[in-house]
Simulated scan of single mutants.
Amino acid sequence: MLSPKSTEIVRATLPAVGGAIGEITPLFYDKMFAERPDLLRDLFNRGNQANGSQRQALAGAIAAFATALVEHPDVRPDAMLSRIAHKHAALGVTAEQYELVRRHLFAAIAEVLGEAVTPEVAAAWDEVYWLMANALIALEARLYEGAGVPAGEVFVPCRVVARHRETADVATFEVRPLDGRELPAGRPGQYVSVRVELPDGARQIRQYSLSGWPDDALRFSVKRVPGDPAGEVSNHLHDHVDVGAELRVSLPFGDVVLADGDRPVVLVSAGIGCTPMVGMLAHLAATGSTRRVIAVHADRSEADHAFREDVRRLVEKLPDAEAHVWYERPEGEWPAERTGYADLSAIDVPADAVVYLCGPLPFMRAARAQLLAAGVAAADLHYEVFGPDLWLGADA
């Protein structure tokens, strides 16, 4: 809880800091990478730095946390903190790195806001920072302890034992540890980090959802990312990594996981957002679940729809399951009412369902609005974002 004096100062200065956060975060990253270029080379996603999404996510997290402290002082935003902690643990972030971040962040704040940053203002925002940082450090420590590894030691040398082509631009990789150790299978909905060495020597890391449960292996799926900047790691995996190759893969992490129980489950995805959903379906089928299951997916066309046959097969295995699919550009005969964008208002969604969303943010926002209108509780709507979370503030 923020002290009363700091609460008043943060409340008074939040508009100024929030208004300048778009200037503060780029300057912060520039300062930190100037001192530690290895962090940009080997830890931070260079693509997200180039397109600005990581900076937006940091700005959103700071603003959301500070706002929560002053508007709801007795309630910690645990959902947001849990999400960040899992992302950090999957990257091997350690407690010592938080002081480095604080130093460069406050230098950037002081440079942008100038004389407005009095000692009292600096002290109040320092309190905000350490409330957030210490909460994350504690959460991450528990995640490392639960994984049975020292802090930050989450990467395991693995060998690719299988590779499958799902679509023209989606490939699935199965990996096993080189030393034969037993890895935790992960929970349905979780992801792993994959570190590869690129031609320029950078060891870049990306996170991919687990898309199934093979024996004694981890299975994740990767979509090729075109554009400028193109996906460095995804394209490297597609072009240069085949059966027999070695990769460093993290233990599984992620807080958006399939809940136990007997309540109805609704899985809503678009594009490559189907990867955690097919993992959840595979788990439900493997455990003989009798839960009501509704799988909803939207894609550009049949050819772009990864795991199309897997979903059909898994839904058929479940005694009370159905699948609904929309294509923007169907390639053959296809119902007119299932052409275009997904329309969840056309589906009878149980009001007591637990819902999982994954896909582009505009898709998830539209789907969430329709589900709320259908009577699903906001607390039962859970979402996974690939890359920086730019949806902070939504109920999850």
Rank of each mutant, 00 (worst) to 15 (best):
V112M: 03
P229H: 11
V128M: 08
P319S: 11
I24T: 00
I84R: 07
L267R: 02
R76Y: 12
V222P: 05
R46T: 14
T25L: 14
R313A: 12
P188S: 12
D78M: 14
L390E: 12
I9A: 00
C274E: 12
V325D: 07
V192N: 03
M364I: 00
A123Y: 03
V10Q: 05
A259D: 15
D42C: 02
H86L: 02
L314W: 07
G152V: 08
R313M: 13
Q190A: 09
L2F: 01
N134H: 15
A90W: 01
L100D: 14
I109N: 05
R83Q: 14
S3Y: 07
V192T: 08
H164E: 13
H240L: 06
P362K: 10
G340A: 06
L371A: 00
R55Y: 02
A110Y: 03
A61C: 12
A123W: 05
L390R: 14
F307M: 05
H240K: 12
H164Q: 11
G114Q: 02
P26T: 02
L281C: 10
A151C: 10
H72L: 13
S289T: 07
V149T: 08
G18I: 03
H236G: 04
A68W: 02
W213G: 07
R11H: 07
S301Y: 01
P350N: 02
F363E: 00
V175C: 10
V154D: 01
R248H: 13
N48C: 03
M80V: 03
R11I: 01
S193R: 01
E331K: 09
T13Y: 05
P4S: 07
S193C: 10
N51S: 04
P37E: 08
L139S: 11
A95M: 04
R165I: 12
G244V: 03
A85T: 04
V311R: 11
A351T: 15
A185T: 13
R76E: 14
A230L: 09
C274N: 09
T118C: 06
Y208K: 07
I109K: 06
A171K: 11
V121I: 10
V112I: 15
E140D: 10
V325A: 10
V256Q: 15
V17C: 01
L105K: 01
E331N: 08
L281P: 06
